[in-house]
């Protein structure tokens, strides 16, 4: 079983990127593909069209925990 893809640069098992509280994720952690991200005033939603997953935060800061659904 492989590791996770980096949410920010999309690399597998990346140890270079530091999470910023001011960035929404750009890449799917499951497949590394670029996400379609919708940022709204107090949260964000990211969709992976390959994995059909939706991640998001109702909080304005990216440090908030992620919820994930199918």
């Amino acid at each position: 079983m492989g590791g996770a893809f980096c949410r920010w640069c999309g690399a597998l098992d990346c140890d270079r990127c530091r999470q910023s509280p001011y960035e929404a994720p750009r890449h799917c952690q499951r497949c590394g593909r670029l996400l379609r991200v919708t940022v709204h005033p107090t949260g964000w939603e990211a969709r992976c069209r390959r994995c059909r997953t939706v991640t998001g935060s109702a909080e304005p800061s990216g440090t908030a925990p992620l919820s994930e659904g199918g």
Partner: peptide, 13 residues
């Protein structure tokens, strides 16, 4: 501007 921006996040309102 409070909250988030167009593609990046802001601090909490």
């Amino acid at each position: 501007i409070v909250g988030n921006y167009l593609t990046t996040l802001g601090r909490s309102p």
